[in-house]
Computed example of a mutant assay.
Amino acid sequence: MNNNTQNKTDNRIQLELKLGEQLNVIINASHALNVKTAAHFDSTLQPAAFLIVRWLFSFGPTNATVLSKSIAMDRSSVSRLVNQLKNMGYVKSEQSPSDRRGVLLSLTELGHQRTMNALKEKESAFYERIAKWDDSKLESFIELLMDFNGLENK
């Protein structure tokens, strides 16, 4: 391998390391913001309970099996957290209209309202970071993220 090729390889490795560092910053900041948002929703709950609430808010009623797979949490933990959320009035369970034996979990009106309030807090922290960007910078960032995430630009 000649010096020019070696320099290009070394440069690529350094760029990939910098990318990894920045992705780690995003992941850690996102986690910290999720914990803060969960506390804003209800400070007496574990942040993991807010994952359930957030999923139900985004995707609507579902059963416990789908919920546990979707948030990558074991079924017993989901069951325990759902029971806690039900006792606090944030989640309700109803008989499935398509399968009389099945149970669908969904947010109550209180759960829905508290989620909206908590997400407004989260959004304000996010928007502070991009507030000074012009539209072209924001568009470029979105396009790069979509490409990174394997999504087609629409």
Rank of each mutant, 00 (worst) to 15 (best):
N2T: 08
N3A: 14
N3T: 13
Q6L: 11
Q6C: 08
K8P: 01
N11K: 12
R12W: 02
E16T: 06
E16D: 07
K18Y: 03
G20H: 00
G20E: 00
G20C: 10
L23M: 09
V25E: 08
I27F: 12
N28W: 03
S30W: 06
H31N: 15
L33C: 02
L33I: 10
V35I: 14
K36A: 12
D42M: 04
S43H: 07
S43K: 12
L45Y: 01
Q46M: 08
A48Y: 07
F50V: 02
L51V: 00
L51I: 05
V53Y: 05
R54E: 08
R54A: 05
W55R: 11
F57I: 02
F59Y: 10
T62V: 04
T65W: 06
T65V: 14
S68W: 03
K69F: 10
S70G: 04
S70L: 01
M73P: 01
S77Q: 10
S77W: 09
V78G: 00
L85T: 00
K86E: 15
M88S: 12
G89R: 12
V91G: 03
E94V: 11
Q95G: 05
P97F: 04
S98K: 03
S98A: 07
S98Y: 03
G102T: 02
G102S: 08
V103H: 09
S106A: 14
L110E: 12
Q113N: 15
N117P: 05
N117I: 13
A118D: 03
E121Q: 13
E123H: 14
F126Q: 11
Y127E: 09
E128G: 11
R129Y: 09
R129K: 15
I130K: 07
A131K: 15
D134G: 09
K137E: 13
K137P: 04
L138Y: 07
E139V: 09
E139A: 14
S140Q: 14
S140L: 12
F141M: 15
F141V: 11
L144F: 10
L145E: 06
L145C: 14
L145W: 08
F148Q: 06
G150Y: 05
L151Q: 06
N153T: 13
K154D: 11
